[in-house]
Write a protein that binds this DNA or RNA. Sequence first.
DNA 1: AAGTGGTCTAGACCACTTT
DNA 2: AAGTGGTCTAGACCACTTC
Lengths: 263, 263
Amino acid sequence: MSAAPSHLTNPSTAASVSKLPVAGSAATFSPLYQQIKVLITQSLQAGEWKPGELIPSEVELAARYKVSQGTVRKAIDELSAENLVVRRQGKGTFVATHHEARAQFRFLRLMPDAGEPHPAENRIIEVKRLRAPVEVARLLDLRGGDAVIFIKRVQSFDGEPIIVDELWLPGALFKGLTTERLVEYKGPMYGLFETEFGTRMIRATERIRAVSADDAAAALLGVASGTPLLSVERVSYTYGDKPVEVRRGLYLTGRHHYQNELG
Amino acid sequence: MSAAPSHLTNPSTAASVSKLPVAGSAATFSPLYQQIKVLITQSLQAGEWKPGELIPSEVELAARYKVSQGTVRKAIDELSAENLVVRRQGKGTFVATHHEARAQFRFLRLMPDAGEPHPAENRIIEVKRLRAPVEVARLLDLRGGDAVIFIKRVQSFDGEPIIVDELWLPGALFKGLTTERLVEYKGPMYGLFETEFGTRMIRATERIRAVSADDAAAALLGVASGTPLLSVERVSYTYGDKPVEVRRGLYLTGRHHYQNELG
DNA sequence: AAGTGGTCTAGACCACTTT
DNA sequence: AAGTGGTCTAGACCACTTC
């Protein structure tokens, strides 16, 4: 390597500084490949490379950031492990997208007890704009009176209604989201969010409980009130761990189950 | 490197062979670091290094297998990602064990809605030996009449009974498992299995449903019959993806929830 | 043939832990 | 001081894809 890259701080070449982190100053050092990872993530967030597109090759990125190819490789390895990008030998590295079968199963864990999973059919029940309820505002990091878009829908498999979903999305990020666009759109909802609104869901946390179906849910699912349902409360995050969706699903688990892997 | 290692097949030095996999012969080539990974896993399985113990350093393993340190490193990186070993800078690499707070949360995802998770208190209800029911036999890869050990217990948090568990274990692997030993043993049950019976749980799959409490479960949990409960059916696997435990838990999710991360 | 990611090596230095 | 894993580099060759 020729010269130390000015915009990056390499502990290997600045040992004295890294050993003396000034209290109060935020000058903390992280490995080079972590810094590269942050830079690449920022480019992804800024939309420099869009979902589905090819990002520059390892050699190009190494030249851009003035580090070795091996360092770029380690950064991309981690981004790939986090499902932010997908590597394809011989072709290159692509920005991950929800427009793939791959991504579907990551975010919908309900599987039929027997047989192959079938694609879900969506029925939109309601879309409206309202002020965020306190609990939703807290989870989405919004202020009290901020607007959110509320969506209610039913998902069916093989014609059988199985899931009742309620979603809350920050109004500021999803301006122009209407029933019409939701109904027209074919494919996964996260695909729509990503393509039409530039918001890509990266990861989510779920809290799962067993509850009794109330009258409304029972009617939509075609079961008796009081039937046990799986309640799945989800908060989804985009780049920078920013929460951008609150969702509550009620799953009918008579012939389906929530599949989970403990590693 | 001096000479080609005789026990390993390196495609880099045997390209012609790797390009001509003979149909019928099982001679398939995998990267060197994958082969190293298999060898290390076999040593773990054979008990050459026991849970909690230090495994040889990267330099030593590189010498043993006649490959570079970088290749060993990549193998261990993956074993570490799969939670088979734990790296500690400056100290070495250790065989993962269930006798750590770390491992607990991987296999018990039920968390209190508010406050910190508390350690579970176990109450053993029943331990007996019986012939494997067909469904259990199928899941455990046993033959029809094989013996299994059946355990029923209740787990409480802060004195409140929250979980009713039923477990089935292959009799051949857990000879001598009695109520007494289960009651005497302090700490996680997987720790007992690992230390006393040499069977370490590596990963598990779970199928989750919402069900109604029957009379027996309701009595044990101190709730009304018909209360919605989370049903968690688990199959646990040890080295070589061998199933070694079937478990069915009923979770009371009034003030607790099953926590899951979607990556 | 040229370009991409995938593997493997060898060597340097760093951060952390123990002796 | 010596040993461990952690980072970074440079260069070679392989497998796969595209032109």
